[in-house]
Design a protein around this nucleic acid. Sequence first.
DNA 1: ACCGAGGTGGACCTTAAGTCAACCCGCGGG
DNA 2: CCCGCGGGTTGACTTAAGGTCCACCTCGGT
Lengths: 190, 190
Amino acid sequence: MKTTTRQRLVESAIHRFYRDGFRNVGIEQILSDVGISKTAFYKHFECKEDLMLAALEMQNQWLQETFRAMIRQRGGEAPIDQLSAVMDVVESIIESDEFHGCIFVNAAMEFPLPHEPAHVSASANKRAIEDIVAAIAAEAGADDPRALASELCLIMEGAYVTRHVTGNPQTINIARRLATLVIAARCSGS
Amino acid sequence: MKTTTRQRLVESAIHRFYRDGFRNVGIEQILSDVGISKTAFYKHFECKEDLMLAALEMQNQWLQETFRAMIRQRGGEAPIDQLSAVMDVVESIIESDEFHGCIFVNAAMEFPLPHEPAHVSASANKRAIEDIVAAIAAEAGADDPRALASELCLIMEGAYVTRHVTGNPQTINIARRLATLVIAARCSGS
DNA sequence: ACCGAGGTGGACCTTAAGTCAACCCGCGGG
DNA sequence: CCCGCGGGTTGACTTAAGGTCCACCTCGGT
């Protein structure tokens, strides 16, 4: 399927909003990326916020798929190895050159009130990721899969934000130590 | 010391920027809070960003003091108890009615590029807090105080962001389990 | 032959940041 | 005593950005 204009708008939006923050980016920058006029833009989206929501939704889909794929790829078949691979995924995310924090967290921060659509979208993504981790934790025979998943996800969030705010390259090692500890604690008694 | 106009500007700024996000708040809202004119404002600050930086700096001072005071108050004299009290402090922060995430993280998210002043300020605050925790960890006889501090701080960040984004009231318990685990692991051999 | 999707240009409105000019008032020091 | 200065006022103004509107173009499918 050929990339539609709408698609290209969303892609540019993800890129720019992620790098510079939603309110820092003028709609006209995105328009000039894509090469259409303002009027044309408003035939695709109601408003700027609509574009952002579409961008978050797209990113949400993409991230869930990527997350699952990477865990299988790096963790192999054994569920317990997949569990450890969660931190491999985190590493590959936060050590990427273009890492500027988790885009969903960024969105939730720029729209701090819980009822705002961007905030809701961020929350939905976090839940989806936690569900994925919980499923793996269950297969790995954790004593309390949901608890383990919530713990690992809290570590993930901590790693994202710490790496982003402080820039400390040791962050991934800190996160790994915590993850190892909690996995061991939850998966000892088969 | 009587509260100067500048002081009142900063206080209103902290309040509004924190609740609604920096770019969501018009300078005129703050002016009407304080009850002065735009011209008067620009005799105190160069620009809106200046005001935000002053607000972050003030919050930074305040938070460090509060953090130290609360740890002593809740943790008592024994360093090992003070270490556990870190999560008490986190609880009191994230369960406050006006909690909308860590203001420094919010700032860093709204200005994602590492060199931006707000981002630098946020980073400085995180370092300061970690130093405080590291000092307590050392007194508590942790095998590697800096490592323990960085681990606890990553849990803190995770708790802030998880509670803020998802609104999950269980967050503090998840964080406490992790903290207990890591403190035990690092403070066993006296 | 025509309709609708997707495109153009350009005028226009509003909000918000920031500037500027002209003026007022109270107070501390030469 | 009055001059200057810190802090305040009003109101007009500029610029940038989001968003609207209108008239018009062009291409592909029924």
